[in-house]
Design a protein around this nucleic acid. Structure first.
Length: 236
DNA sequence: CGCCAGGGCCTCA
DNA sequence: TGAGGCCATGGC
């Protein structure tokens, strides 16, 4: 078994199934999603940019209560109305713009038509939108469109850099290629793996806490990887 | 008070 | 391409 699969197994054993993506506060982990649910995931993916999920939940709740958590509603509302509702997530002016540009695009394009494309086509289309970067695009692809791609975020970089596989400031696509090269293209695996990374980072791999002794990855000696053996990700 | 949180865009060299 | 500034709230 490759080490990346072993790490997933160990994290799963410690933290249990995460059942992402959370939908209106609940973790169901279901794979059949309505268009409304898919859209809600997209909204959450945008709102959680550099923001704790707690604050995103408040914003989603506000949108829900105002009955604006729908593509057409967000697309046709006033910018200030959206901004006020998503205020708890911070960057509310920018994010209101991002949500509206995304919603207008989806409205014109059609969610199904977009998501039915091959993965790379979908990724290019998402990345062409203002406000959608690689992590947000990949979160949408994996959790909303349910196509196999590994989401890289600050937690992923932190954990895998501390395990010796990359630099903490490594290039997004480089780390993504490294991880995906040794894992089966499995949507459920990628969903759970990413969720487990987030959970693990929150619980015992925080910024100021470098692989503590209670960290299961350290216990299993999975941090013995030598970056000189397998080529450390080039940053330049 | 400071740091951090499931980033991304813009500018400038 | 890369470093640095900017966006901004809430929890601890």
């Amino acid at each position: 078994m490759h080490e990346f699969q072993k790490i997933h197994y160990v994290l799963l054993k410690q933290h249990g199934p995460q059942r992402w993506w959370p939908l209106n506060g609940k973790y169901t982990g279901k794979s059949r999603l309505s268009d409304e649910e898919k859209f809600e995931i997209c909204v959450g993916a945008i709102l959680t940019q550099n923001t704790s999920w707690k604050n995103v939940e408040k914003a989603l709740c506000n949108l829900q209560k105002a009955e604006l958590l729908k593509c057409e509603k967000i697309a046709n509302s006033k910018r200030e109305v959206i901004a006020a509702l998503i205020r708890p997530t911070g960057y509310f002016n920018q994010k209101a713009k991002k949500l509206q540009l995304f919603s207008v695009h989806v409205q014109k394009r059609g969610l199904q038509a977009m998501f039915n494309q091959p993965l790379q086509k979908l990724r290019e289309e998402l990345l062409s939108l203002w406000g959608i970067g690689p992590e947000t695009a990949d979160s949408i692809i994996l959790y909303a469109a349910q196509k196999p791609i590994f989401v890289i975020d600050a937690y992923t970089r932190r954990i895998f850099s501390r395990l010796g596989y990359c630099r903490e400031d490594c290039v997004y696509d480089d780390l993504q290629r490294l991880l995906m090269a040794s894992l089966p293209m499995d949507v459920k695996l990628f969903k759970e793996y990413h969720a487990l990374i987030v959970e693990h980072a929150k619980v015992c791999c925080t910024k100021n806490n470098v692989l503590s002794d209670k960290c299961i990855l350290k216990v299993h000696n999975l941090n013995s990887h030598n970056p000189n053996k397998i080529k450390c990700l080039p940053n330049s």
